[in-house]
Design a protein around this nucleic acid. Sequence first.
DNA 1: TAGATTGTTAATCGATTAACAATC
DNA 2: TAGATTGTTAATCGATTAACAATC
Lengths: 221, 221
Amino acid sequence: MSEVRPISIMLYKRLLSYLRLIKQRPEGSPDNISSAVIAHALGLNDVQVRKDLAAVSSGGKPKIGYITKDLIADLEHFLGHDNCSEAVLVGAGNLGRALISYENFANYGLKIVAAFDTDPRVIGTSFKGCDIYSAERIPDLCRRLQVHLGIIAVPAVAAQEACDTLLNAGVMAVWNFAPVNLKVTESALIRNEDMGASLALLMKTLKDKMSPPEEKGRGRR
Amino acid sequence: MSEVRPISIMLYKRLLSYLRLIKQRPEGSPDNISSAVIAHALGLNDVQVRKDLAAVSSGGKPKIGYITKDLIADLEHFLGHDNCSEAVLVGAGNLGRALISYENFANYGLKIVAAFDTDPRVIGTSFKGCDIYSAERIPDLCRRLQVHLGIIAVPAVAAQEACDTLLNAGVMAVWNFAPVNLKVTESALIRNEDMGASLALLMKTLKDKMSPPEEKGRGRR
DNA sequence: TAGATTGTTAATCGATTAACAATC
DNA sequence: TAGATTGTTAATCGATTAACAATC
């Protein structure tokens, strides 16, 4: 009975970057690759690359490195890409439509199978092959489609209700784009994707780089 | 001469969640708040909250906690929200338009001042008040507007070129939504926002929770 | 064999948490 | 005063890196 330790997002993203790097290599590249090459290409430490890969693959060979074909298979297997998963989307506004049309999801074995909205102008239409239903049908359709993942792309004020509805409909994990801290009692899995946060941190880092930060507080005492 | 240590994204996101929590408190809430209350609401450790806040604010008072008004001001100041910053967007497709219409950015003091695309059907139009220009005008406009941040929302194949163009035009930081590892020689600041990665990790965590993972590798030896 | 490369063990580093003294 | 709450110091934990032995 091995403990299931949740994998860190840092590690997961590194593994993805390895996979992407290897897959993007030009036609005719050698069929093996060393940890040092991977590390150099991504600006990482080579020991870290080996450790990461050891957690995932059946290993490399001294003097040869890793066989790319096997490594791709191992990475995809571990990352879950070879096992297509389905999700529903709540909110078919600009962000929702961007998510529907984000082809990249398919590369990760992900598929958005239905979208929901409350706007009568979009209900009943479809976008890039994804049908948009009334939000009232969330319970019904989620159960019928046996979907366990929901994506929330509604305005902040509507997010909590959307989340509750999804969880009641059997959804077990929620990817939330609304800038709110969703309250969940049960052991649901919530991932908040606060895009503003990422961008704001990038800008702050940039500013601090251009002009070092002042001292903290505002000197009001 | 204090060392400028780059702030970790974890810390930054926690600080944002404190700010959001405090701002979202209902009208008539007390004008002070304790670290324990914040910690409990967000599922964190109260010592961590105090340490985080110590890095940012001029401090709380024993038996009282933190004055919300001052704390909001300190957090906004530290996070850079009281200092509006401008960015340009390359790629006005679905994702680009979603970013333009993501009102939440304004809450972080961010503004997208111009968008670029190569599609003649959208060049010359505007979306939600944001003008869309030909990609050829990136160098010209970035310099004139003195913009230091660029957002890349183009397909993967076009991302590297967009990045190069931006950096040549004086942009110093790039927020990249395309699923590629951008190559940059100079000391430009690159932040990759791989949405597929976040979603895929969420799904994997969910799967592992529902059925524990198998052993690694594929047993091919 | 010699050299390249992996994988492991130990050291380091940073972030989180526990214990507790300080203070209003 | 007594109790609530902050802030600091020390301990813990996990992740990264360095050193090095194993191996093809």
